[in-house]
Design a protein around this nucleic acid. Sequence first.
DNA 1: CCCGATTAGTTACAATTGTAACCATTATAC
DNA 2: GTATAATGGTTACAATTGTAACTAATCGGG
Lengths: 165, 165
Amino acid sequence: MPTSVRTALQLEGFLPYRLSVLSNTISAAIAGAYQQRFGLSTPQWRVLCILALTPELSAAEVARRTAMDKVAVSRAVGALLRSHRVQRRTASHDRRTSALRLSSAGRRLYAQVAPFALTYEQELIEPLAAHDRLTLDRLLRTLLGRAIALGPAGRPHRAAVAPRV
Amino acid sequence: MPTSVRTALQLEGFLPYRLSVLSNTISAAIAGAYQQRFGLSTPQWRVLCILALTPELSAAEVARRTAMDKVAVSRAVGALLRSHRVQRRTASHDRRTSALRLSSAGRRLYAQVAPFALTYEQELIEPLAAHDRLTLDRLLRTLLGRAIALGPAGRPHRAAVAPRV
DNA sequence: CCCGATTAGTTACAATTGTAACCATTATAC
DNA sequence: GTATAATGGTTACAATTGTAACTAATCGGG
């Protein structure tokens, strides 16, 4: 039964629930590609992705771009430093902040995992026709914009939990 | 840029990431409606929803229908029993299992929270045209089916984490 | 300048959650 | 029938995660 014509809260058809199940299923699948194999947690993987594309970011910048909170970023960066996948130096213009970049080991790791993630994404949307993919893109953008606009349903906004991929 | 034409893993456009952010944003909004106000955790809320629609389920049945694992269900049911929102009796035909049902307090609570959740869902999809809602429904079904079919990306399947709404 | 307010980042502690081991009961195989 | 496996459910322990408090550095207004 489509989302728009129900009147009772049937969990199976409830849009937030369906999104949650879908997202968790997909995230678990991708996480399988790096968790045990490379000992990489999801927050670490997300930091890696951001730094692969744009190096020299501060932790705060990483937090903003990944929608993770700063404590999660701090922990992930700490682990990545310990495993020598990320390098850090203090920024000259603001000694509170640091500039983060992948080490060569970090880049190698990213180069191993990223293709898998992209391939998975392609296989995931493989059954969708081209115009469906465009529609999906638009629907997700609309829904996210709407969810942000609606806000926390009448109470002070809470930082979003760290997404799993 | 649509999901289908990228070649590098740009987190902001990566479908699994976008689904995760969207799902977490929505879940956080709805959770705000019951967390502090009624001291209800998300697993508890989900058990409540299932039992409101179909009473006399066993915990294992609840687990199956909510896509939560049995430990999470056990804990949620335990809390709901302590707060007298759920009643439990041992099933006569199989003394391992129990039959769960909402107490009147549980039903009252559900009657308070459910309308909010449904209203939120309606407001969320309000900007979507009728045919977009149908398409969304279809796309989510297709993607979930595909994600399940693709499975855990080449390794033994792990129980999905408990969704947040 | 210089003092309060803000921001970057870390640490400590509490709460949640996952994993594994476990008991009781029922189904299955011989 | 009895041994063995499988299932429902709980508990204990470890690992993750959220929250709050904290230090250090910069910003802003007098």
